[in-house]
Amino acid sequence: MTAPGLSLRGDLWLDKAPLLRELALEMPAARWSCLLGPSGVGKSTIGRLIAGLPGPQRLDGTLQSSDRAALAGRVAFLAQDGQLLPWADLVHNVTIGTRLRGERPDKARARELLAEVGLEGLESRRPASLSGGQRQRVVLARTLIEDSPIVVLDEPFSALDAATRVAMQDLAARILRGRTVVLITHEPLEAVRLADRAWLLGPEGAEAMSLPEAEAPRDYRAPGTLDAQSRLLARLHGMATECT
């Protein structure tokens, strides 16, 4: 698995209305690219576009991988919640992809990956008996077993409490190393901690943001992180006041 970079250029339309104009997003291979912006600006639409999921979105431009191969079948998509099978245990949930394609499920590997995301001993539980953070760990394990080189994270941790969220960010950063990750979030700290490259999405389009020098995942206590976070928050605050 070599993760390709992504290049997204052009105008994004939602039905017949322009959503984001003149996008020029160059997302480097095997790195975290972050799209930060207020709700309703079109972040999730970009995520669905990259994943090739159905919706009213249309790109008037190009979406390409750096290796020029098609994206279909190489993208995993992680959203907030609701993507686990409530009737199935965790091993079954992790191996659902192989079952859906009619391949032989590798249960041993599933147990291995569940242990890697910190869910050892819970393999025969059902999602309803897990916490929100644990459920997202299951989804991470499932993404790993699918071995998709490109991973779209659509506000994956926004339903979690602050401490769980930080722990999940660290886990995701460790576990998705080597993959091209597109992180969609409305949370400045999340963007500052995890991104190698980041854009602020607003009504005027996408604007590249400067990030601290340190390697991701960045320490949330470091002055550079806190400084970048407060600057971003101020920008988002400004947008929110403009809109209301």
Partner: peptide, 22 residues
């Protein structure tokens, strides 16, 4: 549920298996 429909598509589920398993 839409999240499961998305998942089925990304995992390239066959129609029959999508029906029976999801």
């Amino acid at each position: 549920p839409p999240p499961l429909a998305d998942m089925a598509q990304l995992m390239r589920a066959t129609p029959l298996r999508r029906l029976l398993l999801l």
